[in-house]
Write a protein that binds this DNA or RNA. Structure first.
Lengths: 132, 132
DNA sequence: TGGGGCACTATCCTGAAGTATACTGCTATC
DNA sequence: GATAGCAGTATACTTCAGGATAGTGCCCCA
């Protein structure tokens, strides 16, 4: 529902929080960060890897619903971002393993922040629908 | 580049970090959080609003490149998520103002985490391309 | 009286993300 | 000899976020 008030606040401007330049400078890194995490599968794959799934087939079974084509593409992207290493062992036939890198751990703070916010948001939504 | 090793690590499993159930429980809130922030425009709009842009036209001019159609749609979504209120003043013609809610401030921790990670990631990428 | 700003909506279109299905060459197992 | 698993690739399709363009009714200003 919209809020109806008597007088526009347009004249009662709050103090500026950030200059336009500061804002843009803040925006770009955030979008970079969002970019590497967005999409339907990146986080599920990372979580499957954290759960010690290493082989292509294992990961595909852990991340239910993903097709081989998409998993292959996503793993390549995660590898490019250095979150994942692809290890090839000269067995016959070759054994291939994927593993998270140490760099992937730098995402922890982000993941925790997103998680915490998501939990309280979910809670809030639930309470809102209960009230209604 | 792939890494070549002598022996598969498949037997040398690291300790489990999270059970599968725990993982899924962690995943959903994260996806919820990502959902409300992802897309090309949500964050730029939030930042424009923080910068005290309140009128539709003001916001559109601040968020360069966005069309009225998309801005309208995004503002509705932000309103549904209770990050934004739409205030209607009974002037002639009606004056409409958008403003961030207190709830939008709960995103601060998430935005800061994403920002910090984004900054160091950018740095890392730059250094990598310099090296090459 | 005609042009512009206001806050939008309607219609159509494009491109990127994701899906479905089939196929590869290799080996191990029934 | 047939079937299944391994780690994918190839081709074709669908879906949907977002973009382009035009137009709404209202008012103000020259």
């Amino acid at each position: 529902m919209d809020v109806l008030l008597d007088e526009p606040e347009i004249s009662i401007r709050r103090q500026r929080r950030l200059s336009e330049k500061e804002c843009t400078q803040h925006l770009m890194p955030i979008q970079d960060a969002l970019y590497v995490l967005s999409g339907k599968w990146k986080l599920p794959i990372i979580i499957a890897l954290r759960d010690n799934n290493r082989r292509f087939g294992e990961i595909q079974r852990a991340v239910t619903g993903i097709t081989a084509r998409v998993l292959s593409k996503e793993l390549k992207e995660l590898e490019m971002n250095e979150f994942v290493v692809r290890k090839v062992y000269p067995t016959t036939p070759v054994t291939i393993e994927y593993a998270l890198t140490g760099y992937s751990d730098t995402l922890d703070a982000v993941i925790i922040a997103l998680h915490d916010w998501g939990v309280q948001h979910r809670d809030r939504i639930l309470k809102r629908t209960e009230r209604a």
